[in-house]
Design a protein around this nucleic acid. Sequence first.
RNA 1: GGGCCGUUAGCUCAGUGGUAGAGCACCGGCCUUUUAAGCCGGGUGUCGCUGGUUCGAGCCCAGCACGGCUCACCA
Length: 527
Amino acid sequence: MPSGRSWPANNFPRKRTSMSEPQNPAKPRPPLPEDDARKNDQDLAREEKFRRLIETGLEPFPHRADPTHTVSDIVAAYAASPRETLEASKTRVAVAGRILSLRPMGKAAFFHISDGRSKLQVYIRADIAGQEAYERFALLDLGDHVLVRGELFRTRTNELTVLAAGCDFLAKCLHPLPEKWHGLQDVELRYRRRYLDLIMNPEVMEVFRLRSAIVAHIRRFFDERGYIEVETPMMHAIAGGALARPFITHHNALDIDLYLRVAPELFLKRLVVGGMAKVYEINRNFRNEGIDAAHNPEFTMLEFYEAYRDYEDMMAMTEELLGGLSRALLGADEFPFGERTISFKPPFKRLKFMDALAHYSGLSRAIFEDPAAVIAYGERLAPDKKPLTYGRALDIIFDKHVKDNLVQPTFIINPPKDVSPLAKAAKDNPREAARFELMVGGMELANAFSELTDPAEQKLRFEQQAEERRKGDDETHPIDLDYVQALEYGLPPTGGEGIGIDRLVMLLANRKTIREVILFPLLRPKE
RNA sequence: GGGCCGUUAGCUCAGUGGUAGAGCACCGGCCUUUUAAGCCGGGUGUCGCUGGUUCGAGCCCAGCACGGCUCACCA
């Protein structure tokens, strides 16, 4: 550790040569960044303490600090060390963190600092840290950042604690933190000012650490299998790859409207045409739809494509990926989700789409043989969606009657072909697609198919979609002739799949709204 | 977009048409092993916004804003 990194030696002039020198020779400071009108008494008190701290000659915004350990390092390494071992070893540490509790007692004080994950207690006394240092310490507030230097010991109540020889100032917290006992509860404030949520609610930090670990695990899974990770355009001239309404934006220099992508699918398959036989992308999609517990307008999707495979192979891979995730990150195949326990232990249940419909809808199988009756029923469920095709009507009945029942992971196999314009037809039924949707916890978690590789058939399917659009369905796939041209160069048999990362995190983190697993979910701007 | 609920101090929350409250936080004083530290003293506020009813509105009514749940839609 570099010498001289102490309060008096580093942050303060060693000795003032004359009492007649101005107390604050430092350059004039710009006003602090907030209108006086918005400040309350506590903001003003903090500002005043900061001003007095600066007047002692201290650097208010230091460039760097030299911690030897993180709080978490210390907790991990010494949590089990008995008092005698700590005292004998005289372990010196320099550790940085935010002050999250403060118990001053005259000429000594206890406080906890946090590195965002763990907390560590510090004991500072005037006779050990020095009178001058202690007086400066007394100008600190809850929320300020400090670097504490000292030796580890255990208090009378056996808590691992740093006995501070010094305490360097690192940053000022100019506003009071939320209440220590209840944390920050207001949902809107938690999302708008997520930093406060992270500071006050440790379980929130854990959700996002888990999210990071999930994504890292997924990357490792595909990297180990020889996949190449790519990034394809987020701005599309044609918003293809999914049946969804896009966001529109504009490029000034080219003077063209562009769409934020609704899916990377068509670009990834172009790459398979180009010879990337195993390819994946983890990135954002944007869909101009409503917001609810399972939908955010921008969301993260994993899409992967593997040549020479079909959707049956994708099912096996999905089981391996999800089962492995649960075991690696949660230590078990099963995990709680709300009131239920979900098991990611392979194999997952497989259910034909039409069988699921017949089983859960209570409708007789005969009805499903009568397209007119199905369409009439679907249009009764969703009057604003008229007119419906047979497949769309089935889809609506599925959402209405089946989805919520599928809590344990279930592959819903062979949905209608006319809502799957990018999938091959099922081998044994030309009205069905060689496709599955994986349902978990009442949500669609994954969607995969044997990719349609016949360019002529693809062009025909696009034209059918255009026809539906003319009839009034605004959730159809646009024609993409450039993509058809790519297929004309030869897309090998390919299995492809998309997995919603946010929903996967919801499941594994046991959070019932997507906003709890997205750091900054979309909210209406204030004011 | 519909229905229901919410919005009071920095935060968490009480508040019954009649002088705006509590805990934490904050301010002043005391306190050298505390830990939701403690003791003494202090209430710091555009009751979301705009109107209305009333002698009188945080409370009743209408409209609006933002949020939550839910339905619809969507992955």
